[in-house]
C-alpha cells in the first residue's frame, strides 16, 4: 500500500460521494459543490493511480493542472447560470416545485 494508492482510493470514494450529491441534492449551489468534489476525486485517482509505485509522473500532473483551471471556469459558469435563474424566478432549484 503506497501513498499514491491511498489517495487514489480516497479519490474514488470522493468521486462517488460527489456523484451521490449531484443526484440527490436539489439546491443548485450545493449541487455545484458536489460537482466540484466529484472533480477533485477524479483528479486524485488520475495522479494517485499513476504514482502508485512511488515516483512523480509529470504527465497526469500536467493534465490535472489543466483540469483544475477548467473546473474553476465551469464552476463560474454554473454559478452564473444559477444566479441568473434565481434573479429571474427566485428559485434555487431546477424543479418547478421549490423544495429548498
Amino acid at each position: 500500500m503506497s501513498g499514491g494508492m491511498i489517495f487514489a482510493g480516497a479519490g474514488a470514494v470522493l468521486f462517488t460521494m460527489g456523484l451521490v450529491g449531484v443526484v440527490l441534492i436539489g439546491p443548485l449551489l450545493r449541487r455545484i459543490l458536489a460537482f466540484n468534489v466529484m472533480g477533485s476525486g477524479a483528479f486524485l485517482v488520475l495522479v494517485g493511480l499513476a504514482q502508485r509505485d512511488g515516483g512523480a509522473d509529470p504527465v497526469p500532473q500536467a493534465m490535472v493542472l489543466t483540469g483544475i483551471v477548467v473546473a474553476v471556469a465551469s464552476t463560474a459558469l454554473a454559478l452564473a447560470l444559477a444566479r441568473r435563474l434565481h434573479r429571474l424566478t427566485g428559485r434555487t432549484t431546477l424543479s418547478a416545485t421549490d423544495d429548498d
Binding site: G9, A12, V13, T16, L19, V20, L24, L49, A50
Partner: peptide, 22 residues
C-alpha cells in the same frame, strides 16, 4: 442511490487494487 453508489465505490477501489503494472 446510496446503496448503488457504495457498491460502485467498492468495485472501483477493488479494481484499482487489482490493476496490473502499467
Amino acid at each position: 442511490v446510496i446503496l448503488a453508489a457504495a457498491s460502485f465505490a467498492g468495485a472501483l477501489v477493488f479494481a484499482m487494487l487489482d490493476l496490473p503494472a502499467p
